[in-house]
Design a protein around this nucleic acid. Sequence first.
DNA 1: GTGGATGCAAAAAGTTTGCAGGCGT
DNA 2: ACGCCTGCAAACTTTTTGCATCCAC
Lengths: 157, 157
Amino acid sequence: MKGIEKLFEQFLRTRGLRLTKQREAILKAIYATHDHISADDLYDELMDDEGWSALKISRATVYRTLSLLTDGGFIQSLDIGGGQGQLYEHVLGHEHHDHMVCLVCRQIFEFHDEGLEDLQAKIVKKHGFKASSHRLNVFGTCAKCQVKGESSAAMQG
Amino acid sequence: MKGIEKLFEQFLRTRGLRLTKQREAILKAIYATHDHISADDLYDELMDDEGWSALKISRATVYRTLSLLTDGGFIQSLDIGGGQGQLYEHVLGHEHHDHMVCLVCRQIFEFHDEGLEDLQAKIVKKHGFKASSHRLNVFGTCAKCQVKGESSAAMQG
DNA sequence: GTGGATGCAAAAAGTTTGCAGGCGT
DNA sequence: ACGCCTGCAAACTTTTTGCATCCAC
């Protein structure tokens, strides 16, 4: 965690950018949650967490910093549809994974399979494409909601 | 193509909805292109194609119909990032595939691999998740842009 | 004729940008 | 002190919605 701040500072330095309190707070906040969070929710969280202090953070700065963090590879965004815009998650200390999105409860589950990654890489390469990243989102119903679904279906007849 | 219109009509009927000229035109337009198109571009295209006729179509109707078509499984949307909103593509007569997005030229390439589909399905099921659909987007550099990249890199260095 | 569908324009939601002043280096 | 960074508010983009009118059935 401290290491990440160091890395961020280095990243900024190499770009001739400055480490400000706002940027630090945003980095911390997004690394403090292990959820997939929207820019707006992150802003709200920062308002709560930082409310007691004199530190003020505007939405604009949140967006600007999020973009910066994405460039630096500290976070990545995903869009799970439903028109709520981008969700962000931190990358460091949280290796690559794919997502299963439950369409009933909107919860997001992560999974990872090395064999799948290898096969994907092989196929893409076969097409002459040089992959730098990928995003696999599976939509459906999670185990919990499948059970709930059955019981409510039974109630309906 | 005629068959698709029939299917759409049936779909509307089962929902107690009506087949209007606007809906027909939008369906045709999205099945006429084999590209991934945004709502706005589709709107523009409709304005051109239908400009000579008396048929008027508003953006609102485009969005409403796109949503209807997605519900009916006639089209599907994807978001390739870059904040240009959703892109749509037709589904019928155009079986499931994944996407490779070239970050240089922004072109989208489609591919499909049965083995990959099977493996994905197996893994997801293993997690107790019931998948209804999935979206795999691979980001990177297409073959053409790799070549271009090399030559421009050579120029710079 | 009736109720769903449309166009228009305003509203929403998410994100970006211009500018004057603040602050990290 | 320099000039990057920030907050603010306005602008922008994409999509949704309210309402009076229109038209498919």
